[in-house]
Amino acid sequence: MDEKILLTEKNLKGNGFQVKTFESSKEAKEALMESISINESIAFGGSMTLLELDIYEEFKSRGNEIYWHWKGEDKKKELSEAYNSKIYLTSTNALTLDGKLVNMDGTANRVSSMFYGHERVYIIAGRNKICKDYDSARERIRNIAAPKNAQRLNINTPCKFTGKCTDCDSADRICNVEVIIHKNPSGANINIYLIDEDLGY
């Protein structure tokens, strides 16, 4: 197991999060399927990590009530229904070695659901999301995650073309809301699955 994962796990637990580590995405998927019952409704936040895991298809074929605006025909309906789900699944833009979650969003549906409104939240992250500190986490978001997402969405932001954040004023800007979760908030049940693989961006 990567030493960075073990240190991050220790500090996340110290900050009140529930944390499990896995050698592979296959093991993490199996644990996730066991942790969530067929009777629980599930919402997905936008995440390339979850897309790569193919976990949406697993839950759907099993029969769970499931919502993901990346998959549903009616995006607005999927987003609306997601707020009422018991379970929320997503990834994080970055994790710091001292056990914090750092995220940037365009509309804030994902980041708000990470800590409020759901019975349980599962955040799945590969080792590539682990950063030394807040500054390196923010650098990762600005110059890795955001440009790649801009390219994926084919939106008109400078970072789509340059691969670097310029703190733009574009109407298509996707870095509008920044959230740092320092510790597990009161009443929240945040479960973090760390996987010793590179997943998402």
Score class of each variant (00 low, 15 high):
13 K>R: 11
14 G>V: 07
15 N>S: 15
15 N>L: 11
15 N>M: 08
16 G>M: 10
17 F>V: 09
19 V>K: 05
21 T>Q: 07
22 F>H: 08
22 F>R: 05
22 F>A: 13
25 S>Y: 02
27 E>W: 01
29 K>N: 15
29 K>R: 12
30 E>V: 11
30 E>D: 13
32 L>Y: 06
33 M>P: 00
34 E>H: 07
37 S>P: 12
39 N>V: 05
40 E>Y: 04
41 S>I: 06
41 S>M: 00
44 F>E: 03
44 F>Y: 11
45 G>C: 04
45 G>M: 06
48 M>Q: 07
48 M>E: 11
49 T>Q: 03
49 T>L: 01
49 T>A: 00
50 L>S: 02
52 E>S: 11
57 E>K: 15
58 E>P: 06
58 E>F: 11
59 F>E: 11
59 F>M: 01
62 R>F: 04
62 R>G: 11
64 N>K: 07
64 N>C: 08
65 E>Q: 13
67 Y>K: 11
70 W>Y: 07
70 W>A: 13
73 E>M: 03
73 E>W: 02
75 K>P: 06
75 K>D: 05
76 K>F: 04
77 K>M: 05
77 K>D: 05
80 S>N: 10
80 S>K: 15
82 A>S: 15
85 S>D: 03
85 S>C: 14
87 I>A: 08
88 Y>M: 07
89 L>V: 02
90 T>W: 00
91 S>A: 01
97 L>T: 11
99 G>L: 09
99 G>V: 04
101 L>M: 10
106 G>R: 05
109 N>E: 12
109 N>H: 09
110 R>M: 05
111 V>R: 00
112 S>E: 11
113 S>Y: 02
114 M>H: 05
115 F>E: 09
